[in-house]
Write a protein that binds this DNA or RNA. Sequence first.
DNA 1: ACCTGAACACCGTTCAAGT
DNA 2: ACCTGAACACCGTTCAAGT
Lengths: 194, 194
Amino acid sequence: MRADAKKNYDQLLSVAREIVARDGAGASMRDVARQAGVGFGTMYRHFPTREALLEALLRNGFDAMTARANELEASSEPAEALLIWLRETVAAAHAYSGVTASMMAAIEDPGSALNGSCVAMQSAGARLLRHAQAAGMARSDIDGADLFALVGALAWLADQHTPAARADRLFDVIAGAILTVQTGVATVEHLATS
Amino acid sequence: MRADAKKNYDQLLSVAREIVARDGAGASMRDVARQAGVGFGTMYRHFPTREALLEALLRNGFDAMTARANELEASSEPAEALLIWLRETVAAAHAYSGVTASMMAAIEDPGSALNGSCVAMQSAGARLLRHAQAAGMARSDIDGADLFALVGALAWLADQHTPAARADRLFDVIAGAILTVQTGVATVEHLATS
DNA sequence: ACCTGAACACCGTTCAAGT
DNA sequence: ACCTGAACACCGTTCAAGT
């Protein structure tokens, strides 16, 4: 990549991060190009679709949640690890509003630029779920895709002007439906009041 | 209303029903006017905002779910009534995809044309919830707004290409988190396999 | 190799002009 | 009273022309 191209790429991404955080996943592409001081064509060269732009924006966060799952797997008890990971993943998905729908679509579409990061993140979550299930601490009739869908639903709820107190309560309701035991340190009740 | 105006109004609504069912809540307004054989201005006269059009489209369904709640309240045991109502309301909300977000927004915005039907429906659901709670059959730490949000989340999930089997399982997970007992005839497990 | 922006086909919404 | 559609200010996307 030529130096000027690299500069445009970085500028585009940095501007997109601001604009998508403000306007959500449906933000104006023209605005991004304009604010980055770059022609529309240049933007389409770097990011041929809106999804390609979202992908570049979200890949880091998704990969971080994948890594976080592995970290928690080593450092915490199964149920606690799952609970902490769920909460952090919902918060991460909520950072860019409207992005959960792209996430749900991408995981079933191998052609999507987001597919890789989504699949990796779902697999990492599924591992935490299986460990909790093996320890008898999570209900055994759900799988990684169910978990992913519930994270999506919680992030969607947080996007809908849901007050934080209600969002927290709904998280507890759903997390409580996944976990079948209290874990001592990081129970649903504990996290709710901390 | 003049006869020609009434005819346009009905035609607009009938066409909108088809188009919104197909393209979701973000469907093209121009398409609706065009397919109805009516000028844009005529459409804006009858429905000044997109929400006004959605309102006319959804009011019947929402009012039906309000009536259904009252009916179930009289005919069924508290937990069973709540469970049946939840399932039917999620299905009704899912009929027009993307509409759940408008629903969530409308209930907090008194200026919205959808506000009335939404509030009435939420109140009816809240009554069913309170009865189940009074009978010790539903968890007591949630309210009508929580219930409404969970219905929205389930309808949203159904909108995201979620396979029916997964959508049913997720309904059971969440319904099971609301209800604290099995009701005999219409348990979560029964409805899941019926 | 890369960048640019006019051009195209759309969109929501308004409002002067018509019957 | 009611209807119409040109007009305005947008949008996503492409592609010939430039450096």
